[in-house]
Simulated scan of single mutants.
Amino acid sequence: MPDLAQLIIEAINKRDFDKANEYARQLVREKPDELWPNYIVGMTYMNGGKPKEALPFIKKSLEIDPQYFWSHYFLFLIFVALNDPRAIKQGETFAAMITPDNAKKSPGELRHFFITLAHEYEKKGDREQSRNVLLKSFSFLPRDPWLRSRYAGTFFIRDDLVAMKKWMKLTNEEFKYVPKSQRTAKNTYALPLRGPSIKVHQGNNDVISHRGVFGGFAWDFVFVDALGRYEHRMDTKEGHFVFGAPIYAAADGKVIAVSQSDPDTEPGKNDPRYVGNYILIRHDHDEESFYAHVKQYSSKVRVGDMVSAGQMIAKVGCSGKYVDFPHLHFMIRKGFSMEAKLTGFKLLQNGKWVEVPEYIPQKGDVLRTL
């Protein structure tokens, strides 16, 4: 019979973290003062979405070996998951330990680390330090399109369009070498609105504004009436059918960003001072769903909340400098936008409603939720 260490490795390779955790806890009981069993218990708890349970084992592993690289990595992720104020300090500690050899062997983990640390600074409002984190990441992963895309996005926030275009061009150059499998979402997502007649005003790679790797795969959703109209009164936000409609989480996940203080403007009178309100949720495979132009102060969730698919998270608004009328801007991303399939609706085809199990909505499509 294989020993416990071999069983643990086999379970991890199968991504059966519950089984690996069970074996590792047995090993801890046999060898409580050894590094590897304590680290594995903490790591598998964390990968199973149990940061509180992971914390004492990761701390124990660092008592045994204060310089163990991956224990520092998981301690940072645990602090982030628990909204612990020590997260940034721990992130800086881990960042100082990274070597080119680490980056070569584990680019995915380090990409996730740099993006997460940058986001922690963003949550504090320190966008300059967030950018510095991403700049540092280039010394280890210089041609990573995910990191380049995130860095380009920091210029969008600052409205430095010249710099953003420069970095988006560099990102696009690297993006063409990324396999299609990495540009396609692994999860399937539910339609984030509910209604009898939802129209796709803009679809993927639309010439209006959905372009480039950062936001090319995205949708703008509105409600329409039987005549295909968006509104009963064009010049007021309240006159648009979709304004104030509930927005629903597209999949189970964790809320990692909420912005809701920007005002809703009247159609055609967007205010260039405001980026717009949004909610960002992280899902399996580190994919994120992004909901933009959210109504001011309508968020029903906070950073750190765990949400379920179909849970109401906010309402549709008309906030932001790049919005001309109320609609929901929705996309799936992982550094850059990803092509994703949606589910839970019927599609209007030749005057008939046809149920489609999984589908990528196109510009002009009219959908009806099940």
Rank of each mutant, 00 (worst) to 15 (best):
Y274M: 05
M338S: 04
N187E: 14
D271Q: 08
A314G: 11
S137M: 00
L191E: 03
D262A: 12
N205E: 04
S319K: 00
R273I: 00
E339C: 06
F336A: 02
K105E: 14
G276H: 01
V323R: 01
L55Q: 15
E63S: 13
N83M: 12
D225Y: 11
T188I: 15
D160T: 12
P192H: 03
A54Y: 10
K166H: 13
H293Y: 07
S137Q: 00
S289G: 06
L280E: 06
Q296T: 13
I9M: 10
P361S: 04
V316A: 01
K295F: 09
G153H: 06
P66E: 12
T116R: 00
F74G: 03
I281E: 03
Y297I: 04
D305Q: 09
F138S: 08
I279N: 02
I313S: 02
F138L: 15
F156I: 05
D252A: 07
K59T: 11
E53K: 08
D144N: 07
Y45E: 13
L62Q: 14
D101K: 15
E266S: 07
T93D: 05
P326E: 08
K300R: 15
G276D: 06
G253A: 03
M312E: 14
R158S: 07
K105R: 15
F345Y: 05
Y121A: 00
V255L: 09
V207C: 03
G310K: 09
W353P: 07
E173H: 13
P267Q: 01
H293D: 12
L147M: 06
E288G: 08
E34A: 14
E231Q: 14
D365W: 07
I64Y: 11
D225T: 04
L4W: 12
L280K: 15
A81E: 13
H285D: 10
A11Y: 05
E10K: 11
V222T: 05
L7A: 10
F57S: 10
G48S: 15
G351E: 04
N350A: 10
T154Q: 05
Y189I: 00
F336V: 01
A190N: 06
V28D: 03
F57A: 07
I247Q: 02
F243E: 02
P263K: 01
F325L: 02
P107D: 10
G335H: 01
L135R: 00
G228S: 08
A118D: 01
S130E: 03
Y291H: 12
H240I: 06
S71D: 12
A218D: 08
K50D: 13
F290H: 13
H283K: 06
D225A: 11
K199I: 03
L367R: 03
Y73T: 06
E10F: 05
P85R: 07
G244V: 08
V28S: 10
I78N: 07
K269I: 02
M164A: 09
M43Y: 14
P107Y: 02
I88H: 11
G344V: 05
A185P: 03
I157M: 12
D101R: 15
K50F: 10
N350S: 11
A5H: 09
R302T: 11
A20E: 13
E120P: 00
I157W: 13
K176F: 09
T154F: 01
A190M: 08
S106T: 09
